[in-house]
């Protein structure tokens, strides 16, 4: 077979040329990685968590490296939605990757106002509603741990935008499947999971927590088995597409998430270590399909759940 396999997938009404997404917070504003020439590969790029007003973020230290993982407490540092629309989005190189903006806020009203502003920007293809940031004191995760508040928020944002709405879920809840079902009911076009897992590290020399905020969000290969399990569970419970993420570093990881029921995958922390990770995963997925004699990536989605004869 000389023809390349069909890598395109759909997230709600949004068609992506391939299922590999650059996760929020790791391509910054899409500009930095462009210099390294590694942005062209993605199906979509998620612009970092954007709030109504600028946010300074949390005091340093904001990072703690853990075994195969990274704790961060950046705290949604961003220049605010107006600056993102005016200065950031126009600078993102248009490579064929869709542009998704991650939306965060402290109140329902704030989410709505950010969504309204972004709704008017042609270059924005979809919104990812962040109801799961563990690093801010109000909003974010407070919505995402309870099905009812999650649904109320999504319902309100749904009224503010006709763009594809992806809701990013937190693993820091006892009921991620209930939250997923609730936001589906409320009008979400897709869910993405998982956001980071709340964790901490202590510096034994100073006898103090490493992070200024004490707790931070854990990402990287360390969280992958948990993320994979949650993608498996949530994709059993909802009919809307699931974007899977959590520790994906290579094509094999992406395949696991697709097989568990994800329609697309996002790469985050791996890009910090290996800027070419996205490129390698896209190529690796293509090569795998060819080696398996398959011509469509969509056939992989949920394939680990198929009942074997």
């Amino acid at each position: 077979m000389t023809e390349r396999p069909d890598m395109s997938v759909a997230i709600g009404g949004l068609k992506l040329r391939n299922p590999v997404i650059a996760a929020s917070g790791v391509v910054g504003y899409g500009v930095e990685y462009a210099d390294l020439g590694v942005l062209d590969c993605f199906g979509a790029i998620v612009v970092k968590g954007t709030t109504l007003a600028p946010r300074a973020g949390n005091p340093p230290p904001r990072l703690a490296e853990t075994p195969s993982g990274l704790l961060n407490s950046v705290g949604l540092e961003n220049p605010g939605v107006d600056a993102v629309i005016r200065e950031v989005i126009p600078r993102i190189p248009r490579t064929g990757a869709r542009i998704i903006v991650n939306v965060a806020g402290a109140t329902v009203d704030e989410y709505c106002r950010v969504a309204e502003k972004l709704d008017r920007v042609d270059d924005v293809d979809a919104l990812e509603i962040n109801i799961s940031c563990p690093n801010v004191r109000t909003g974010g995760i407070q919505f995402g741990t309870v099905p009812e508040t999650s649904a109320a928020l999504v319902e309100a944002v749904r009224k503010c935008t006709g763009k594809v709405l992806i809701v990013k879920l937190t693993p820091n809840t006892g009921s991620i499947c209930e939250v997923a079902k609730a936001v589906e009911q409320a009008g979400a076009d897709a869910v993405s999971l998982i956001n980071t897992i709340l964790g901490m590290a202590i510096d034994v020399q100073s006898r103090r927590p490493v992070l200024s905020t004490v707790f931070g969000g854990l990402s990287g290969p360390a969280v992958k088995p948990i993320a994979l399990r949650m993608v498996w569970q949530v994709s059993n419970e909802v009919t809307i597409p699931v974007v899977g993420m959590g520790g994906i570093s290579e094509a094999n990881d992406a395949l696991e998430f697709l097989m568990a029921g994800a329609s697309a995958v996002a790469v985050g922390t791996a890009l910090l270590r290996n800027p070419r990770a996205g490129l390698e995963i896209v190529r690796g997925l293509e090569d795998w399909l060819v080696s398996e004699g398959m011509d469509d990536i969509r056939a992989v989605c949920g394939s680990a759940k198929a009942v074997r004869p």
């Binding site: 917070g25 790791v26 391509v27 910054g28 930095e32 990685y33 210099d35 390294l36 300074a56 973020g57 005091p59 340093p60 230290p61 904001r62 990072l63 490296e65 990274l70 961060n72 950046v74 540092e77 890009l271 910090l272 800027p275």
Partner: peptide
């Protein structure tokens, strides 16, 4: 300590005299 080194992750900030990170 840095994670990315290229301005993306905002993990390495320092507070400066003008009150910004």
């Amino acid at each position: 300590r840095m994670a990315c080194g290229i301005g993306v992750c905002k993990g390495c900030v320092v507070m400066t005299a003008d009150g910004t990170y």
